[in-house]
Design a protein around this nucleic acid. Structure first.
Lengths: 217, 217
DNA sequence: GTTGTAAGGCTTACGGCGTAAGGTCTACTC
DNA sequence: GAGTAGACCTTACGCCGTAAGCCTTACAAC
């Protein structure tokens, strides 16, 4: 009579884990808590996941799957820009993922597919294998690094930033960090400033450089 | 009779914690283990450290303190390059630190001093406040992102890379990721290839771009 | 239908974790 | 010699990941 409760699957587990991490941070993801949310005991999760590391690997791959891939044959510069923007958007949505990316060393299928497409786009645009490696490395480093920095900002709004800044400067000897204060007060705390805008600047810097290197070939 | 054992200090605790993390990874740093290494019970550490988060904050700041700062008044491009190279070297020595940087939101004195010096160098070179912010953001994102990628490589030598690569490609459907395979086999696995060399390329790309923006002012 | 079997989920238990609460011992001040 | 502050210790609590083994269901073969 009791209707069969919805069966667990690896996908349902991963989706719940990603949602938990989004809502409460990575440290709020525990096997017991996850089980509870899925209406199941912790140990039952092990039917669908080898262990916690496997769960984390799966979460990273799920995040990668969210990043939009360029259409095959798209113009390389547009493709790289859009991919980078999408990656940043996704990593902002799941800030915990950046930290995980480092410790996970078993890339999942979505991750591999992602890299393959990006590399393919560059090769098709006529980049040499060597320049493709340079480009891939440079763009990825920048995107992940930027997301990392954004995720470590201890505030989300200008008001919060002002508060945090004030608290920080109070604890410092007066005049100890004049340049940092100048930059903060005269630029970052100005109304309308958005740290996210810095992203485009650096990205175009890199794309410009790659373009030059490609043409100079 | 029993000679007074060396007193604990915050510094001794932090140094031991950094050493532990270097040797056994971040997850090997626990209050109990750290106490043991220092010949003390876990709870005694709390005299010198507010809690584990405070310990982690201190570790990050200790790592920042290792990064070489440019001399005041140095030529900006040289200064930025050397700083970036030093940061990468240090982060390679303490790969766990990158992951920590993100979750820590209370920058310590060494960190603040570091940022202040970098910003000051750019301002003294005539960079506008705005361009300084752009430059600071772009360089840091790149350096941290690169270090992040380097730290997540699951190998340290060409031989290891070949092994890992082979294992990975075995598990994939044949021909599924042709571009990834090409790049790996024809470039990365070639004798003499060093992923670290990619660092310079991207760094010069960014410095070139900044130089152009600065001159165009 | 009965039986065999595999798989999903549950129970219990172990050793580790961070740290709250409160105790003891030492070294110094007056 | 009494008082006090601070360094270090003991105990205990509620978390954690997961090994081992049990119970229940669903279906296949006969």
């Amino acid at each position: 009579m009791s209707e069969t409760r919805a069966r667990l699957t690896r996908d349902r587990v991963l989706t719940a884990a990603v949602a938990r991490a989004d809502a409460g941070g990575l440290e709020s993801v525990s096997m017991r808590r996850l089980g509870e949310e899925l209406g199941v005991e912790a140990m039952s999760l092990y039917t669908h996941v080898a262990n916690k590391d496997d769960l984390l690997d799966g979460m990273v791959d799920a995040v990668f799957a969210e990043i939009e891939l360029p259409a095959v044959g798209a113009e390389w510069r547009t493709a790289m820009r859009e991919r980078a923007v999408s990656a940043r958007t996704v990593l902002n949505r799941h800030p915990w993922a950046i930290r995980l990316m480092q410790s996970r060393t078993a890339p999942g299928p979505a991750t591999l597919r992602h890299h393959d497409t990006v590399i393919g786009t560059l090769r098709q645009a006529g980049f040499t294998v060597e320049l493709t490696a340079h480009a891939f490395s440079a763009i990825d480093a920048y995107v992940y690094g930027f997301a990392l920095q954004e995720a470590s900002l201890p505030f989300d709004t200008v008001e919060e930033a002002a508060e945090v800044g004030a608290g920080m400067f109070e604890r410092m000897p007066a005049g100890a960090f004049p340049h940092l204060v100048e930059l903060t007060v005269e630029h970052i705390l100005q109304p309308g400033y958005d740290y996210g805008d810095e992203f485009e600047f650096g990205l175009e810097l890199i794309l410009d450089g790659l373009d030059r290197a490609h043409r100079a070939r």
